[in-house]
Design a binder for these strands. Sequence first.
DNA 1: ACCGGAATCC
DNA 2: GGATTCCGGT
Length: 356
Amino acid sequence: MYCNCFSEGILAAPVNHWVSGLAFPDWAYKAESSPGSRQIQLWHFILELLQKEEFRHVIAWQQGEYGEFVIKDPDEVARLWGRRKCKPQMNYDKLSRALRYYYNKRILHKTKGKKFTYKFNFSKLMVANCPPWKVWAPPSPRLLLRSPALCQPLVPMAKQSEPLYSMLCTRATETQPAGERTPQRPPKASGDKESSSFNCECFGSVLGPGWQRPCCCLRNLQGGLPSPAPLASVPCLCCNWTHLLGPILPPLPSEQSLSGSSKPGPRLSGPMCMPGTWHFPGLHLLARLRQNTGQGLWCQFLRPEELVVNPGPGPSRHLDSNEGLSSGTQGLKLGKGISMSPNPENMRVMWPSDPP
DNA sequence: ACCGGAATCC
DNA sequence: GGATTCCGGT
């Protein structure tokens, strides 16, 4: 039967790039290991609609409630979904059944008392769809850091709040309690989902040119950092989060009052390193975290002189982890530009197991 | 409207 | 596995 799924404004392409200004990273689709599952999933379709101006009258983010959205026209949403899936008999009753299956998966939950109102749980969404076996894929640069965590901004676990913070911390904390963390190795098998932690190679496809390879961000702090308090990781400075955050996440209330553009502003969309100033790509995210936590966040990264250059194959000198931590900590208050300019090159790390 | 079990499809 | 379809129940 002919299906005009592609003829509507809603594309069905499993893209890794911007669609109408929106990024849908490949982690948002199912892993390649499950054939046939790369078809769009309902939650993804919902996000897609939510991102598009032209469907605002059909479905929209709920003002004031982070991740909450309202289906304004259930029949139309069902029709669009049915069209996309080539299921002309689709209706809201069936669609809502599919949505209810997300409850148990904690991808979604119903906002009680509000008709046609649901709320995303981005933590589950993200963790469940970022293929974790990519997580420990070692990067292959030439600079070596003693601790894989040294380039990460640090956030005390006490500041955890859902949804974004838990999104970032779930992987970092679920495998081991604080204080018992030990360095982890990459999973042996690609199917080893549960033993891995969380970094951001899965975001590689939404990073710009030059940021396509795995980076050191979002790796957890199981690398043995001496920590006075339980710590979790948030993205490091080498990821351009703006591409991810803009499309996937609902706008902040302050953003909703802006001109209606879904594009990130120039403050966020420009290159990470600008002449004279350095734009922290995680700032947008951290601002959201901060909004959720109601507290300031601190970031940490290495000074360039603390990086150890490994000129090539052969033994490399490692920084002592205490050394790196005690002298390399740079406080960074949110909301301010960073006067120092950490070169992205400095953020690359090499695993000792890297092949020469 | 909303829920969730069950069977079924792909 | 992720819906889709159906349906009895609240």
